[in-house]
């Protein structure tokens, strides 16, 4: 299993790095889930790529392994990861839930509302927020 994990992960982009801020208001499991999701959408992680075992990633980040497990479960619920007991987690081959899914759209709207409210309280103008959002979307869609 370790060998499979090693060979599979070596094929990933070298920049597949996670960065979490333990002092942030955003829970660590959400930071991890958000970054892994972004890596999948950007194509840095491809279908079939294995992710590090929960305990290994917890060790590297210096946090409890349940936090990593929660992040993996969140991504599994979204259809982005497959978790096979005894074989770890890998990026799912199927496409994630359709954007037209009303529940997913409602979740997105809710999280966006919270995020926009937070950055507004920190003084960012509406124009700047729209600009940043567009830059992020363009970045995810690629050249």
């Amino acid at each position: 299993m370790v060998l499979m994990y090693s060979t599979s992960v070596h094929q990933m982009a070298r920049s597949a790095q996670l960065k979490i801020d333990i002092a942030s208001e955003v829970p660590a499991y959400r930071q991890i889930a958000d970054q892994v999701r972004a890596l999948i959408v950007e194509g840095a992680l491809e279908p079939g790529d294995s992710l590090p075992p929960v305990r290994k990633l917890a060790l590297d980040l210096g946090i409890h392994f349940n936090t990593i497990a929660e992040a993996y479960r969140t991504l599994e619920r979204e259809g982005l990861l497959e978790i096979i007991h005894g074989h770890g987690a890998r990026v799912a081959g199927v496409s994630p839930a359709s954007p037209a899914d009303p529940e997913a759209a409602e979740n997105f709207r809710q999280r966006l509302r919270e995020l926009v409210a937070m950055v507004r309280t920190r003084g960012l103008s509406t124009r700047r927020i729209i600009g940043e959002l567009r830059a992020v979307v363009d970045g995810l869609e690629g050249p």
Binding site: A16, Q17, L18, K19, S24, L39, D60, L61
Partner: peptide, 13 residues
């Protein structure tokens, strides 16, 4: 610093 990083790349044996 409260920021921690980890690589998703496995250690090369």
């Amino acid at each position: 610093s409260s920021v921690r990083t980890a690589s998703l790349i496995a250690e090369e044996p």
